[in-house]
């Protein structure tokens, strides 16, 4: 298949899904109370985006996601680099980190509620917690992806420690780091949503949970479209950068 054919086939698939979403409920093939037609959902999305209640929820969620991200990524990266570079620290902490990494983080949510209540702090803390392990693991992998041969070459050319860091470590690690950024955002966003849906009085996750409980399907689907669009957008932007900086990784 040529590239054009692939793109065409993808567009056809997307069109088919959207058309089914629009017409199956209209024709009564599926229950419109369970799956409202696409047109109705989009109209609802338009309405919701005009409501101040929704604006506030978006602002709260965005703030939580941003703060949790800013805590989890640098902290996780620092721990990960330390675990990879420092033998003692690595040997002592790595097994424990791996064990905790394998446990589903959501089972700790009740503990976060007991400690932090159900406000902003709880959601940020839980999201950061559910993100930090993947950042640690990836940062460790990023450091380990630096080839010792390259460091040796740089040293033979008279590189200082700082030059080795900036000219060997950073470019070697960049593809893995960007990938980490992208994947940690998925974990982070998921963490905030779970926390908001589980116990919260604010945020988009809270609204979505409410709409679901009250059987407000157009609102529910509008919320899903909104979140999906934001998540996909972030993912694609970072992935685009990733492809650009890792062209040499072939």
């Amino acid at each position: 298949m040529t590239q054009a054919q692939v793109v065409l086939a993808r567009l056809a698939l997307l069109g088919l899904v959207l058309a089914a979403w629009q017409f199956l409920p209209r024709w009564g093939v599926v229950d419109a109370r369970l799956l409202p037609a696409l047109g109705d959902v989009l109209a609802m999305l338009g309405q919701l985006l005009g409501r101040s209640q929704v604006h506030e929820a978006i602002a709260v969620t965005a703030a939580e996601v941003a703060v949790a991200f800013v805590i989890a990524v640098p902290l996780g990266a620092a721990i990960g680099v330390l675990a990879a570079e420092n033998d003692y620290f690595g040997q002592i902490f790595k097994p424990m980190l791996f064990y905790v990494f394998s446990v589903p983080k959501s089972i700790f949510l009740p503990m976060f509620i007991l400690i932090f209540g159900i406000g902003f702090e709880q959601k940020v803390a839980y999201a950061a917690f559910s993100t930090i392990f993947i950042v640690i693991m990836s940062a460790t992998a990023a450091v380990e992806s630096v080839k010792s041969d390259h460091v040796l070459v740089a040293r033979s050319c008279g590189a200082t420690r700082t030059q080795i860091l900036l000219r060997i470590y950073v470019p070697s690690m960049m593809p893995v780091l960007l990938e980490t950024l992208r994947i940690s955002m998925i974990f982070n966003f998921t963490g905030v949503m779970i926390a908001e849906m589980y116990a919260s009085r604010t945020g988009i996750g809270h609204l979505i949970a409410n709409w679901g409980e009250n059987f407000q399907m157009p609102q529910l689907f509008a919320g899903v479209i909104l979140l999906a669009a934001v998540a996909i957008l972030f993912n694609e932007v970072v992935r685009h950068l990733e492809v650009r900086v890792s062209a040499w990784r072939t």
């Binding site: 041969d149 740089a154 033979s156 050319c157 030059q163 000219r167 960049m174 900086v245 040499w248 990784r249």
Partner: peptide, 27 residues
């Protein structure tokens, strides 16, 4: 002293020219 290592010691993220310039860029 200049050193030429075994294979695969070029920096894959730099072009041939940038690889050659690397020692000069350090200085």
């Amino acid at each position: 002293v200049g050193v030429v290592f075994q294979e695969a010691s070029l920096f894959p993220w730099l072009s041939a020219l940038d690889n050659i310039e690397f020692p000069l860029a350090l200085r």
